[in-house]
Design a protein around this nucleic acid. Structure first.
Length: 137
DNA sequence: GCCAACGTTGGC
DNA sequence: GCCAACGTTGGC
């Protein structure tokens, strides 16, 4: 059981759309490091959805519901995807400024490697983020 | 719009 | 296999 952070530009795929569709194929990832993380995902893992560029905040949760598999739309079978199911919208979105101002999150990937679109979170980071978001998980 | 931090490409 | 040049992402 692992924790992940998935970034999405709201103009491309906002959390609101995941709420409408309930589940989706998380595709479009091409960065080798990010693809490596996707390959590590297991059904039952959970993810936080971060809105990049616009909003710059973590807005909701999702559950990984499939293992990674090659994207049928891609020739290159190194391009893998997973399917995710919507979780809950956070009572209080956690903005990047808040994350940067929180000592327990100083090493989080969002800050340290801002361009990476898929990254792991530690249990400590996860708990800290959910507390900031006003959830009791 | 700018720039930092990566990634990618292609000549050698 | 290096590395310079170029492209992309994303925060500011």
């Amino acid at each position: 059981m692992a924790y992940w952070i998935l970034k999405s530009e709201p103009s491309v795929y906002p959390f609101e759309r995941l709420e409408q569709e309930r589940r989706t194929v998380w595709d479009g990832v091409r960065n080798p490091q990010a693809l490596g993380y996707i390959r590590q995902m297991q059904p039952g893992d959970t993810a936080l959805i971060y809105h990049s560029n616009e909003g710059k905040e973590i807005v909701g949760t999702a559950t990984i519901i499939t293992a990674a598999y090659p994207d049928p739309a891609e020739d290159d079978d190194k391009i893998v995807v997973v399917e995710i199911e919507v979780g809950t919208r956070l009572p209080h979105p956690v903005g990047l400024a808040t994350i940067k101002a929180t000592k327990a999150l100083a090493d989080i990937g969002l800050v340290r490697q801002s361009r990476l679109s898929v990254m792991p979170a530690t249990p400590t980071q996860w708990q800290t983020l959910l507390r900031l978001a006003g959830t009791k998980a």
